[in-house]
Design a protein around this nucleic acid. Structure first.
Lengths: 197, 197, 197, 197
DNA sequence: TGCTAATCGAGACGGTACGTCTAGTCTTTTT
DNA sequence: AAAAAGACTAGACGTACCGTCTCGATTAGCA
């Protein structure tokens, strides 16, 4: 931040101060100017870093975005002993996290970038798989408690939850009332078919 | 396409040939170069049109994308008399459509564009709402047949289906086997909870 | 100069105001920052022009330099009726011109550029030939007056004079006293050999 | 060249192997890539040397160029007992030397560099003066033999010869036939004026 | 023998400029 | 009035070099 005079090389190895400054700048630019204003130039300017320093460590905008996203604090996954509350709580926390921190902007941008950048797409897939298995854990716990049928594919169900989250994020609808989320989770858990069918 | 010598003004009104050429070029560019290569410049070059001609009729990249998407043949919504088959069929058709035509590329691009362009976001929301009400129709039909509980929010359930479709599109997973789709739809209809809970 | 707001396109043809502004800026940059500071970026900045506008009309730094040089007022070639006075006057005028205007900087830069740019080298050769034939005219006139042996190669003699001028320019010695120039011209006209040899 | 593993420090003093490797690399780069491709970076890469090692001993590109030039074998100055043959021989040898070795490239580059680097200009002037006094020796010898008028300024005449050489070098005309050189030298020695004037 | 000091290769650093691409605006000419 | 054409300013792209810096290893000469 306030360190004037500028950062220098610390020898033939990566300067963590520079890396830090760049990641912080990237996040700030994203928050302030959005994905449209997110350019390597802008990040370099903001971080008082040279463009080559950025390109040296992050070969693409996507790589930078991904690392910025990874640095974010993770959202809490509640454990209430009840599947519905767990899932509703998870989604509520996630939406609040995306709304109130820069995470939402960052992740949206990452998804957008992945639509034109092969590497970003791959990174996103890999990253997403990891996250989903995390979410699937909620369902596995419920399975262990006997709340969920044993033959349910937890990963697939988790994917469904994530899909909903993605779409809300991408369409700027992170402020759904909890009731709506609960209804949605209700459909997933209880189904929409009439009993007896 | 092949009209040489170049199109000319046809007087004080929109030249439908130009509009057509531009939309076709936009689609072609998207298919051949992807969203990354999709620029007004490239479309103008391909369509042998001036950039201002494009900007006159489509104020943004998003508007052009949206119209290209709207021109696409719609996907069939089957009516089998059975909710599960209807939904599985719908998703299968949609994935095939996205896979086999340019629609997938176009829609992906539109979503990406909406992440940095306010107008695109609005257009996408509006468009999506229309589409969802269409999908919701499938559920309403099932409700009428008594397959679905009367108090189910068909729009929300439709949104859930759409969410899944979006995520598969955005993560390049349009080739899921029908069994997976059916399992997913099964969770939505029957829920994942154990009977009696 | 003072025209704010900035220049705009004047339709599908070259804007002479831009060309003018760029050439003036190029000259100014060269005078103020020298060849070392002469970059397309700097010229664009100074001229409030886009880089592509410069590259559109001048494919290389050399082309720009050459045009800047050509725009300069030409140096007077005196006609005193006497060969020695003509040549001394020509060189004195040339040195003064190079010293007192930007021409010297520009031409030096052009020669330097030609050492690394093939196109510049070609342009310089072509341009130089034209100039030398001009200088050779002085000698041809003297030949016509009978001052010079008929079989003298005027072009070669002119080249010799030009060589001296180049070297003085390139080594920052444009302030030689006229006596030195006259001595040098004397050697060319009268030779350095003892009479009778 | 082939010394693997790399050179190391040999203690608190200059490593002559490194100096040698750098000078050789500089020459090689200049020959292979020309002045345009001659960068400290490229020399360091080629020499397997660190950039600071180069900067430590040669503060500028010019200094490096100058030392490379000085290392070159000097051109022979013939002593035929006849002024014209001496000068023609000298120029012929010089042109051949510049053509057939890397000297030409190096010296051209040095002159070019001197147009934007003050230090290079100074070095070039100093070096040139030394060389000219050498060339002037030819004329002094002729003066001693009585071939040349006693009041002739040998240094100035030598400068004129050097000027011609520079210009031929800088304009890529080192392949002039000896006849042309002889004609040029003839003008210098005998003048171009008609006898009796 | 152990310490100091200078040098080495290596490579990162903040910067500047390169030449290309696209954005979005503008004007003229043609229909 | 609208089309084509293409120029305009602006600024981002990703790369190459600039000259400086710090590192860790190396070795000579001084203590």
């Amino acid at each position: 931040m306030g360190e004037d005079p500028a950062r220098r090389s610390i020898g033939a190895r990566r300067n963590p101060d520079s890396a830090e400054a760049i990641l912080e700048a990237a996040e700030a630019v994203l928050v302030e100017a959005g994905y449209a204003g997110f350019s390597i130039e802008a990040v370099a300017r903001r971080a008082r870093a040279g463009k080559p320093t950025i390109y040296r460590w992050w070969p693409s905008k996507a790589a930078l975005l991904l690392e910025v996203y990874k640095r974010q604090k993770r959202v809490d996954v509640p454990d209430t002993g009840n599947l519905e509350d767990d899932l509703v709580g998870f989604l509520s926390n996630l939406f609040a996290h995306w709304r109130d921190t820069s995470s939402g902007s960052v992740f949206r941008s990452l998804i957008a970038e992945a639509q034109s950048d092969e590497a970003a797409a791959a990174a996103l897939t890999g990253y997403g798989d990891g996250r989903h298995s995390h979410t699937a854990g909620i369902i596995e716990r419920a399975k262990a408690r006997g709340e969920v049928t044993a033959d349910v594919d937890a990963a697939l169900a988790a994917e469904l939850v994530a899909s909903y989250a993605w779409k809300q994020l991408l369409t700027n609808r992170l402020d759904e009332p909890e009731a709506t989320i609960r209804k949605m989770i209700g459909y997933l858990i209880g189904g929409i078919a009439r009993n007896g069918l």
